[in-house]
Simulated scan of single mutants.
Amino acid sequence: MSENNYFKLSNKVVIAPFVAVISIWLVYWLELVLKTNFNQFGVYPRTFTGLRGVLFSPFIHGSLEHLYNNTIPLAILITTLFYFYNKVAFRVLVVGTLISGVITWLIARNSYHIGASSIIYLLASFIFFKGIFTKYYRLVALSLMVVFVYGSLLWYLFPIKEGISWEGHLGGFIAGLFLAVVLKAKTPAPKKYVWEQEDYKEEDDPFLKQFDENGNFVELEKEEIKEEIKINYHFKKNTNKED
């Protein structure tokens, strides 16, 4: 990666989560200043006006606790997305938000559904499944880390607690899985060992030469290497003259 590309990637990794976090906190601050709430801009199922929540609902939160609980995982997962899947990160966020919002609009209970948790489920789902599908060991390790840190999120895909939009969670989860399947993300080619390469010849392998056909160790004769030592003397003329 060139220095210029690395600089651009670093900027995205820092700026993207910063903008996301600032946006949701700014909306909540506006609610406090205006002494109102924007819940009516959330997703309201199967109504035309409720469709506006597909775009607006991730920015709206019902309480400070709700906002705080979404802030840290949102920042971490967006950072992870832009670092490991930089080429498709914006598409995942934009398309995934639309898909998860529409799913919520179709299946949810008659209530306003708000909060960035649908985006959190979208990102966790995409990062997990994409890592598994690529079969690249670092991304698989990342997937396992997501499970370890956010594995408890799976419980909230079901209606186990009143007041939580499990429909939004499920919509985000499905959207992340779908995008992990259809989006092509460039990943490093798996490392091939010497013996996996097409031009590999067993008889030329220096390691295998140390063993006979029965697998017994054979000590190779060491060729004496004569090193010629050459010493060069450099004389520097003294230009300082004494009176």
Rank of each mutant, 00 (worst) to 15 (best):
V13E: 01
H61D: 00
V218S: 05
G176F: 10
I72M: 15
F18D: 01
T36F: 09
R138G: 06
L9F: 01
I225S: 02
F133C: 02
N216Y: 15
W195L: 03
V181Y: 15
S125Q: 09
L77V: 10
T79K: 00
Q40K: 14
I160F: 13
F217S: 13
K192C: 05
T80H: 04
F38E: 01
F126A: 04
L157Y: 04
K237W: 10
L153G: 12
F207N: 12
N4D: 07
V140A: 10
V194D: 14
P159F: 08
I72R: 12
S152H: 14
P58G: 09
A16W: 04
G96E: 03
Y28H: 12
N216E: 15
D243E: 15
A20P: 02
D205W: 14
L51K: 06
K186V: 08
H169K: 10
V194G: 00
V54D: 04
V54W: 00
A89S: 15
H169V: 08
V140E: 13
I78A: 04
V102S: 04
V194W: 14
P17I: 05
K186P: 01
Y85Q: 07
G50I: 03
E227I: 11
F38T: 02
H61F: 09
T71K: 02
L81Q: 09
L9R: 11
H169E: 04
F148A: 15
S63R: 12
I78V: 14
V182W: 11
K12G: 01
F211P: 11
K35G: 02
Y200E: 04
K191N: 07
G53D: 02
G168N: 06
K201W: 13
N86G: 05
G50P: 03
L55M: 14
Y44Q: 06
K236L: 12
Y6L: 13
A108H: 03
Y28R: 13
K230M: 03
S63C: 11
K236Q: 14
L98Q: 06
E3S: 13
L81M: 12
S100N: 02
P188L: 11
E228R: 12
A116M: 10
F59R: 04
M1F: 09
I76Y: 00
G115Y: 13
L179R: 06
Y200N: 08
Y200V: 05
N4E: 12
